[in-house]
Design a protein around this nucleic acid. Structure first.
Lengths: 202, 202, 202, 202
DNA sequence: GATGAATGAGAATTCATTCAT
DNA sequence: GATGAATGAATTCTCATTCAT
């Protein structure tokens, strides 16, 4: 049993993340979370006070994970183009490795970010600070187009990356393939990088 | 009273679209829909049988609207690049004019397309057939890159366009501006068109 | 169309009898009755005021039909035993010919006769007056047992006859045959007559 | 408070049996059952899932009670006639002691046995196996008529016995006495036994 | 007489939350 | 920390009945 491997609190948190990511806060059922976490429902209230608070906490934890990932300095080897590519790749594979994250963000976005706003107004997924820095340097050095609109570029990158994961089920239907297979994932990433790079170089 | 201005059925449908787009099927309340439609709750069941069926019907109507819009032949003036730009512009402004549509699709996508699948497995938003045709012609004529992966390009276009609208609330927070203002909308569209065109021409 | 063959009122009455007999007053749906009668639901209220009144009226009509059948003088040929047999036969085939009647009575009996009581306290299915008379005469003439308890005998006859029809579905399951087939019906009737006659003759 | 005297589950079951026996599934109200059981309505769903399932479960429990009663071996003293009388008496007093049982069966019979069929297609109230055995033995030994139709005899016995209880309210009106008074009950039983015995002996 | 649309009261069912232990 | 049973407030859905024409 990995029942006691993690403590109840951790199990609840993990279960909640799973269920909220799968169904959103309105579709999620407290019973399902408790059952999945193999704890008595009461414990959930013991540790997290309410469904809403639990949800908000799950968001918080995920934001922090994402921030931490964003900050992890990546090797600054290669030219700026390569660094941009690398940053996108890092972000893309962070999403792939943490599939609950983009889904949680997507549910939250549709709800106007009301829960996220309460706890973490500042963060959200601007969280590509290193990328921003590289792009700025590229512009300064004349490697990237001088008329680059950073806001737009960053929005495009995050949308393209996270959109791939939040729309996986639909793409699976349309493409009749599994978008999450390593091959397809890599193909998609290459396409996104190509798209972005072509649009920013002079 | 604009009581019987539109029939109850239409009012219910309109109200349902509004509420489902705003809150998703799980967040929506039948009472709210009935109230917004200014009808007795009973009528909702009379016309649409259940909340779920009503939701599915709203999806259906929206799919059809989108298909109709996609089919509307656009002027084939200008070169192929201009035609691509025009097709993206049409799609983008269709979403802007029908803000419920991208949101409904986004909720649905997060739920794995379970409801949509029931009604219209085939459609979804591949629905950019004219665009696909233009791209193919461009490749054939040697105007666009021969190695163009249409699937990828189309996925990027739809993701970029609809992602802008489904994430509007988050962008509003990050940018501290209204993403839906005509100016910002147009600026975003131009960015997307530029991004795509640069990536497809030789 | 036999739609206009009978007037709406008659069609409603016929439909109501059918549905009430099939499902009882609580299981019956006004909508189903109206639909079966091919009339607008409003007409039902026009003619019969309420579901309850309609039900009560159906009971009344059926009581009267049964009384009328019971009064129809039967040929007084043959000895008293033959006359008893004939009376039971008449009753049994009246029930067979009017399958709604025993069912309506059975639903009503389970409900304590509350609706019937309101309108027709006197009738119910004592309605075998001719039979009663024959039995009394038989006792007087010394043909039947002097210690005959008429109440008990009549109760047995009605129970045995109507019970066969109200339990038809269960018997169908147990016997794996159709209790209402002419053969089985006749066999059952013969059994009942035999049972009763043996118990009343000296 | 005899609040937890019996567990809620048992109280719900008892209350449900009472209410379903009194009013049938369509006439019964979940609220009434919950109130009678002194539990929160929610518990009913917790333990039994739905009104329909609760009803089906009540049927099941009653079937089993009846089967158990039927199996209880009765003293095989006396001749076969006495044994038949004893078996009928046992059955009759089982019904008297469990008044909900014949009523539940009667409602169910009128509905075509649709719910019972789900749970226990095989049982129903053929459940007089010991009686059947005695009758067969009697025929074999030449004590009972060789042309005895067992199916018919058993149907008559069950109909006469259970019919007495399901029609009690009507008999009360007709007879202007209480059919359930010990005296009247016993008188009725004697009549039934006499009726049956006379019809089966040679 | 006849109709289709509408309604309010109520019935079944669900859900987050809390109590007693 | 932990638990099973319990609850009240919604929430979805149903039904007999009535209104406007």
């Amino acid at each position: 049993m990995e029942r006691s491997a993690k403590g109840s609190r951790e199990r609840i948190l993990a279960a909640a993340e799973e269920v909220f990511a799968a169904k959103g806060i309105d579709g999620a059922r407290v019973d399902e979370i408790a059952h999945l976490a193999q704890v008595n429902k009461r414990m959930l209230y013991h540790y997290f006070n309410s469904k809403e608070d639990l949800y908000t906490y799950v968001l918080k934890v995920n934001f922090e994970k994402s921030l931490a990932a964003g900050k992890k300095a990546f090797s600054e080897k290669g030219d700026l183009k390569q660094q941009v590519a690398e940053a996108i790749r890092n972000y893309f594979y962070f999403l792939a490795a943490n599939p609950n994250y983009p889904r949680l963000m997507a549910w939250e976005a549709l709800q106007g970010g009301n829960y996220a706003r309460k706890v973490l107004p500042e963060i959200w997924e601007e969280g590509l600070p290193s990328l921003k820095a590289i792009l700025e340097e590229g512009v300064a050095r004349g490697v990237f187009r001088p008329d680059l609109d950073l806001k737009q570029v960053l929005a495009s990158i995050t949308t393209l990356c996270s959109g791939y994961f939040t729309n996986k089920d639909i793409l699976a239907i349309l493409w009749e393939e599994d978008p999450l297979s390593p091959d397809n994932r890599e193909k998609r990433l290459k396409h996104i990088i190509d798209l972005i790079l072509r649009s920013i170089v002079i």
